[in-house]
Write a protein that binds this DNA or RNA. Sequence first.
DNA 1: CTCACCGGCAGAACGCTGTTCATTAAGATA
DNA 2: TATCTTAATGAACAGCGTTCTGCCGGTGAG
Lengths: 276, 276
Amino acid sequence: MTDAAADTPTPPPTSPWERERPARARVAPVRAPLSRERIVEAAFIVLDRQGLDGLSMRQVAAELGVTVSALYAHVSSKDDLLELMYTRLFTGFAMPAPDPERWREQLRDFARSVRQRLLSHRDMARISMAHVPFTAELLPHVEALLAVFRTAGLPDRIAAEAGDLISTYIDGFVLEEGMWQDRAAQLGGGDSSMARPDWREMAGDMQDYFASLPAKDFPHLRALAGLMVTDSSDERFDIGLEIILRGLASYLPEPAADGGPDAPGAPDAPRPPDAT
Amino acid sequence: MTDAAADTPTPPPTSPWERERPARARVAPVRAPLSRERIVEAAFIVLDRQGLDGLSMRQVAAELGVTVSALYAHVSSKDDLLELMYTRLFTGFAMPAPDPERWREQLRDFARSVRQRLLSHRDMARISMAHVPFTAELLPHVEALLAVFRTAGLPDRIAAEAGDLISTYIDGFVLEEGMWQDRAAQLGGGDSSMARPDWREMAGDMQDYFASLPAKDFPHLRALAGLMVTDSSDERFDIGLEIILRGLASYLPEPAADGGPDAPGAPDAPRPPDAT
DNA sequence: CTCACCGGCAGAACGCTGTTCATTAAGATA
DNA sequence: TATCTTAATGAACAGCGTTCTGCCGGTGAG
């Protein structure tokens, strides 16, 4: 504070327009010491903005106002970060307590909730597809799912596959949803706010394309064009899910004459979504 | 040939040590003019050797003894090349003529054949997952699949989803197979010839891990550990497939008492793979 | 109070990627 | 023989994941 002040002249009193960063606030606002959680958080922001192909370590670092190498002090690799994002997507996910009388509804709710979580971040199904839920944080979820299957009365060999089957279905369905969405956005233009109308337009184009196929060679494709490309994917998701649930139900012993009106087990007893 | 020869002086007679390329035979042996087909072929070689992550345009070019930019005269982008590989994997795939009495067997054969094709090239399920079979070359296959569903008697809304459901299942299953295989190889060491013993060892480790979980918290996971990680994936594949087929069968009208011993339609009539 | 330490971040660098550009060599055509 | 077309080259650009070295500020010991 003596003559040393000549070497480091006291900066002029911070001018009003940059008053908001008084103490060493150039890049790192001194707060938030860059934890794993903050990195994951920033990664989700970049993911939603630029998609999985645009999710680079440099972009995540830029989102945090930090250099790339700083990330590697908390995250060992990009794969590590992706795995963190995958597990964080499903932590806190409420699993049902197994109820043998409601296992179909429980699985329906489960599947729909998983799909919603996957849809809550762009390209999340692609990330989910590349990972296996056998990490320590996600094992309880697998256990809870198995519990639903087994207490419902499914044979062990069926229960062992059912979880994979349903999870694969959800991931694959949402993945495909995202692909169509991307294709529509890319076809229409870069503006992401235009995704909606472009999607509807593209669905119409697809139906027109199917309808334009030679009737002699593609009778079934023409007949089902209106069903394969629909406005809302919710119905399609439920139908595929119902096929799986009915397949599982076929492995239950026949309800032994105690059958209430909602007795599970009979493969044709539970009402289909709307299979006229 | 007048004084213009001074501008382009005739090169000295090729010195003896570079005599081996008398007529433009340095890299391209003048034969095989680098068609799309040849590029795809080389891409498959690189894919099998280095996996999808090691499949770069430069590697493909090197495999052909050609520079990168030469590829772009025949292929518009890497995505284009991947799509070419995807469609070529399934061109020439024999689809069954729909037979209402054998639709389950036909679908089983179909699914197993598709799985074998996916397994015939490394990481092929990852490529398949990223594409939709709605290209001109693959549309007949979709049509044939729909024909099987509809002539079997499935409602249209079910038939429209069944193709996606089965395809997604196959892709997802093989994808997961490959993931475990990669993880085992990567854990054991880079030597690809060691893949087999490492896989078995890893399956044992997984089972041990499941068995070591606290019995109080993971009873079902412990009970099914031996079924979820098996030596051969063939059984598991068939079981998941059978669940789907039974689910589809549940949408058929009850067989009207004409039933032979192999009558399709009854969801519990066809024998499960081995669901004790 | 001083000094050494040490963790967390910056900056630069390496080798790789997909893609584009101008250039060149060779064959075909007139 | 002169021109045109084709196909491949080599260099370049921007970006990627990852690693290494060095700085800088806060902390505990003497």
